[in-house]
Design a protein around this nucleic acid. Structure first.
Lengths: 219, 219
DNA sequence: ATTTTTATTTAGTACAACAAAAATAAAAAG
DNA sequence: CTTTTTATTTTTGTTGTACTAAATAAAAAT
């Protein structure tokens, strides 16, 4: 059974792999805010327990086992977030921190019950998919809003790299999952977008924001 | 901030104090299933941090601070149990283990939210009182069913020393909080009681059971 | 007053998580 | 293809938590 720290390493590798197919010692050291030597040591331990495939000086990848282990932690995290929002009434910008703690609980029955009470949801409150218990995950092929152009109509399906402050801003602007955007203008200078949605017109979203809004096209 | 282990020591001292006004090294060693020397060492650390009043060879007591600290853990435990039963639909015999884990979470807002959703309950699903955040606790003056005699009518208000198997047995016998008992007979030989309740008549409860059923008299 | 019980001290183990500095390997640049 | 740079690993060492066994001391009981 991994400790909390080891679980956090597994998560970090999982996310890095998702971005870059692979993880490096340096990336992990940056991510975990520790010395590279600490990471090397830790990776050896994870390799010993069969959670990562590792040969020295080579990039790191999760093993089958580690993949499942990591996915289960992420499953717990995302189920918890969904539970906190849907059942307990928290705002979507409040739940990440709490879920960071709860995801390390061992009681499987707790998470199974959440799952059932929520009707076996397939995404968390930010639209991130919830892995199955066996580690499988259906990733939807959404693209970022920043990839579209004037005239396109898009529905918000997920927010990635979501920090509390980003989510709070979106809430403030009345943007949530399901919101439908019409792109009115794209500024060539800074790639910011002017969009309409709901009863809001001519709202400017910076590129930094648009990069994080994952949408599906509906026209 | 206490570690999980230290929190468990605080709880253990709290419970022992409740029974005996005070806790000893030996009792704690037995309770925590560790060597006495381990306990001595740990108690010194707790004393250093101001959670227990301790002089060597003398009995141990929680300090004001330790009292509050312990009460808060117990608050979290009991709120969690209540939440698991009332909101999540677990049976009262299923929740102790889960709550043992959840009680160590640091997110205050989670427990505050549980509290609110439950309507600020004053007892857990087994009738044990829930401490306030400041550590205060209103202990009701219930007595054990075993203290009463033939002809008395009693309402079940709490189950103490509740193990999962005891609770499962009570559920099986259709006994729950609020159940009203009529004492029909008390066997002098083994102090077992024959009682009527609901639609059940002539049910025998051993002394071991009756000692753990805390009741109020209603006639 | 001596024995027994209980508690403490001492000395040590094991493990987790970390870092600094030196050594080494791999990759990039010349 | 050698040199330089960068990335990684090794070595050595720290800190903290939780624990034990054996020796000793204090308190309680006979």
């Amino acid at each position: 059974m991994p400790t909390q720290t080891k679980e956090n390493y597994l998560k970090a590798i999982y996310y890095l792999q998702q971005r870059n197919k692979t993880a490096t010692i340096s990336e992990l050291a940056e991510e975990m805010q520790v010395n590279k030597s600490t990471v090397t040591e830790m990776i050896k331990k994870l390799a010993d327990r069969g959670w990562v495939d590792y040969q020295k000086y080579k990039p790191i990848r999760l093993s089958e086992l580690g993949q499942v282990e990591a996915a289960q932690i992420i499953r717990k995290h995302r189920l918890t977030e969904m539970f906190l929002v849907d059942i307990m009434g928290f705002g979507w910008e409040e739940v990440h921190e709490i879920a960071e703690e709860v995801e390390h609980l061992k009681s499987e029955s707790l998470f199974d019950r959440m799952d059932r009470l929520l009707g076996f949801p397939d995404a968390d409150p930010h639209g991130s998919p919830i892995p199955a218990k066996n580690g499988e995950l259906y990733r939807r092929p959404y693209k970022a809003l920043s990839n579209y152009r004037v005239g396109d109509t898009l529905r918000l399906k997920a927010v990635i790299d979501n920090t509390d402050s980003l989510l709070a801003m979106l809430t403030d602007k009345q943007i949530g999952l399901g919101t439908e955007f019409n792109i009115k203008k794209v500024e060539p200078f800074d790639k910011s977008m002017v969009v309409d949605y709901r009863n809001c017109e001519g709202i400017t979203l910076t590129h930094e924001v648009c990069r994080r809004l994952m949408v599906e096209q509906i026209n």
